[in-house]
Design a protein around this nucleic acid. Structure first.
Length: 587
RNA sequence: GGCCCCGUAGCUCAGCGGACUAGAGCAACUGCCUUCUAAGCAGUGGGUCGCAGGUUCGAUUCCUGCCGGGGUCGCCA
């Protein structure tokens, strides 16, 4: 399936070549000035710079040839040497028809695909999921959908935080609360209870308490460290208790992710890398990659030309324990062995950029990552309307469950106000409200560029006007409804056609999809998809207002418009799907 | 203090070497529902793109400095 800009680039490139200039100057892009043209090529300027020639003269030469091509309605030179191109409606129509019925909406499938691992969610076993996990989860989810659609084999891993100091903190905290439990008796050898002594709710209370206590009291911190080390070296009671922590957490997180519509492939965690740590450490030591330093075993990672200090990566603490940089390193070995990935993307908070830089350097130095490109896909923090990290009024972090519930309640209320789904069954109304609430949250998050620290304002997100998830759902639903009606009337779809301004605009948007996906992928930027979805939806709305389709008497014209509607719906469904947003049948 | 990120309309954010009279949404104002869902559409007003230099034919976009905000800086994650 030809991509329009690529197609045009080839065409213009050939014209450049004929004009005696390298063809790769002929790169064509969408016009920055839609009022002047549909497409532009800036190559004449660059070529002139290189050849110390007059850009307008080069442009004249190129355009002379292009003007002979009947597909162009307009070929002009503007300003210092921009080449402006506008296609005829016929050319646009022809192009649209090449992918009107394509299941992939004209997007080529990458073949062979790559193997990509996406490390996301990153929830800590000791904590409930809160707003902080939202971004990693939905950005990571969007990326996994994006790469899969492109043709890659994707493995997404929630990568639980289940092996560090917080485990020791929890263990010692439980011990203080319930010292009579057998887990703490070193002499106990029998089987440990099968049911967990704590629930997720308990953990949510215990962890902050333990964490605060350790911060305030060095002794407590040392106890926690000791417990962590004991856990890691295999103390049976601790392992048994830790299993319970793990099980109750996974259960809860599974439910939460499912309610977000997110389905990871792997439910691994830091602890899964544990068996690989010792062999890795020995290997690194043997190869001289790791060396002793201040009682710990470290991999020096500083390089010449470093602008900042690069402390060595610690593969074994002086107390023998493992840090998360150790398990992150070992996890790379695990992943290379399991699936030999081409890329590993870590969708993790921006603040950990130093950490990843360190792990990546160590990995490369020790040649652990095989052929895999390692990349930290960083994102900014979620703030409240006061600009500080988003908290409840009482100062607690907001639980993801509550957040989703709030948005969905808001959606339900909105439905009531509009009296819109009044005749639907309560099940359908609930399903719609849930989908709309989720769309509000996801779109609001994803529409910001990744690294932006954005302000979370649920009131604004659930307003459902303007550039929001619900608006996009609404537009898609209108198209569905329209197509349903047309079918009921027996109106047939006919070959798509471009004749009016709003159709032209829509056609240009539809032709952009391959470029949009490519850009979203290369920048790992879901907001590119959001922008595009909004452009499509708004373009459709304009078209919808300009043409009353059902009352169009000429069957060809009516059918062509129905075809255009279907193309818009297909792309909207695809792009919203990549964003993890579902479209109800009606709303 | 070193390093990293950010400072664009009243608010929330796009754009990050090109056509600049800088875009969108919200908020304000004006129109448009007896025909396909008005959660919509059309339109008006609103900005010295933090400040000062530099590179360039051309800078919101690149470089330097400064101011303001945030983050981060071996045995936490």
């Amino acid at each position: 399936m030809p991509q329009l800009t690529q197609d045009l680039s080839v065409l213009v490139g050939a014209a450049f070549l004929e004009a005696g200039v390298e063809a790769n100057y002929g790169v064509v892009q969408r016009s920055d000035r839609p009022d002047l043209a549909q497409f532009q090529c800036n190559g004449a300027l660059a070529a002139a710079k290189a050849a110390k020639a007059n850009p307008r003269a080069i442009a004249e030469n190129v355009t002379a040839r292009l003007k002979e091509d009947p597909r162009f309605a307009k070929v002009e030179i503007a300003g210092p040497g921009f080449i402006n191109l506008t296609l005829t409606d016929q050319a646009l129509t022809d192009h649209l028809r090449t992918f009107a019925d394509d299941r992939r909406c004209g997007v080529p499938l990458r073949s062979p695909g790559q193997v990509v691992i996406i490390d996301f969610v990153g929830v800590n076993i000791a904590k409930a999921m809160h707003v902080g996990h939202l971004r990693s989860t939905i950005i990571g989810d969007c990326l996994q959908r994006l790469f899969r659609f492109a043709g890659d084999t994707v493995y997404s891993d929630v990568h639980f935080g289940d092996w560090g100091l917080q485990m020791g903190q929890l263990i010692t905290e439980v011990e203080r609360e319930l010292p009579q439990l057998p887990y703490f008796d070193p002499a106990y050898s029998g089987p440990y209870p099968e049911t967990s002594p704590v629930t997720t709710d308990d953990l949510e209370v215990l962890y902050p308490r333990a964490s605060a206590a350790c911060k305030a009291d060095a002794d407590r911190l040392n106890q926690a460290r000791q417990a962590t080390a004991d856990l890691q070296t295999g103390r049976p009671g601790y392992r048994a208790l830790w299993r319970h922590f793990q099980n109750v957490s996974i259960e809860t997180v599974k439910r939460e992710l499912a309610s977000l519509g997110v389905h990871p492939d792997w439910w691994k965690g830091e602890s899964d890398a544990d068996p690989l740590v010792e062999p890795m450490v020995n290997d690194l030591q043997m190869r001289g990659v790791a060396v002793e330093s201040e009682g710990a075993l470290v991999v020096p990672i500083d390089q010449e030309g470093d602008k900042k200090e690069m402390p060595p990566l610690i593969v074994r603490k002086s107390d023998g324990g493992a840090l998360y940089e150790t398990t992150d390193l070992a996890t790379i070995i695990d992943r290379v062995r399991e699936v030999d990935p081409d890329q590993i993307l870590y969708v993790v908070d921006q603040r950990q950029s130093d950490h990843f830089e360190r792990v990546f350097r160590a990995s490369r130095k020790a040649a652990l990552n095989g052929k895999a490109h390692l990349e930290h896909v960083a994102f900014g923090t979620v703030n409240g309307t006061d600009g500080k990290p988003y908290k409840t009024r009482s100062g607690d972090s907001v639980k993801l469950f509550d957040l989703i519930a709030q948005a969905q309640d808001e959606a339900r209320q909105r439905l009531d106000e509009q009296g819109i789904a009044g005749s639907y069954s309560s099940e359908e109304r609930d399903a719609i409200a849930n989908a709309v609430g989720l769309a509000a949250i996801k779109f609001a998050d994803l529409t910001n560029y990744r690294t932006t620290n954005y302000i979370f304002d649920l009131v604004r997100f659930t307003r459902f006007e303007g550039e929001t998830g619900p608006y996009l759902q609404y537009q898609a639903v209108r198209i569905k409804s329209l197509l349903r009606r047309a079918e009921e009337q027996g109106f047939a779809v006919a070959p798509v056609m471009v004749t009016s301004a709003s159709e032209r605009e829509l056609a240009l948007s539809l032709s952009r999809l391959p470029d949009v996906l490519a850009q979203a992928e290369s920048r790992r930027a879901p907001n590119v998809l959001c922008d595009f979805a909004f452009e499509l939806a708004q373009g459709f709305s304009r078209f919808y207002g300009e043409h009353h389709i059902m009352s169009e008497p000429v069957p060809e014209a009516r059918g062509a418009r129905l075809a255009l509607c279907r193309m818009v719906l297909d792309q909207l469904t695809l792009v919203l799907g990549l964003l993890g947003i579902t479209i109800p049948e009606r709303m």
